[in-house]
Amino acid sequence: MPHAVSTGTTIVAVEYAGGVVIGADSRVSTGTYISNRASDKITPLSDNAFLLRSGSAADTQLVSDYVRHMVHQHESQLQRPIDVPTVANLVMQIGYNNKNALSAAAMLVAGYDAATRQGHVYAVPIGGTMVRQKYAIDGSGSIFIYGYCDSEYKDDMTREEAESFVAEAIALAMSTDGSSGGVVRLVTVNEDGIFRRLHAGDKSVPRFGEEKDVHKDLTDKANAMQT
């Protein structure tokens, strides 16, 4: 398959004091063509847990479909919301038991358990390892932001700090990785619920390095023309 549809992708998830913040870029490519420039790679698995998908779009969508099915069955038997570690475990089981079929499915699972008042972030990379982490990144763009994330991550961030940590990380990855781009989608899960946030367009996605000033000139000129 020369041109499988791939989410290329940068995905980031972080636990903060009181919940989790997760984020993803929106680029989907087929070869060098961007087949979807505003996709949503943050897929709900339960009322309080999400799957962040990277790698093959088809494979990871299938995984999320199966897990959502299992979550439904499980919740209707238990008569209570499923907890995040169990959701992560289901993703892992599928990843591990089908490691050859899913050789391009790298995923993160993140969510918040109201019962234990605890956020959870799990990495489930190719191969079906399952690792709980304070923050996790994956996707082709993630390799460009290991340094940023290791240096900027702090334990027990506030919600605002965590949201800018994730948004900045994804914007940075998008600036270097050709397979990541478009908009930055953020989801915050905490005691109060689920909050989606979108960073789209020239003003709200920061630019870096040698692209930075061009951006500034552009907006300045645009503003000048308008006035």
């Binding site: 499980h74 238990l78 907890d83 570690p85 169990t86 475990n89 289901l90 089981q93």
Partner: peptide, 11 residues
């Protein structure tokens, strides 16, 4: 083995 946590007594 499958869910990674102990089975609830009711189940």
């Amino acid at each position: 083995h499958f869910y990674g946590s102990a089975m609830p007594t009711e189940v």
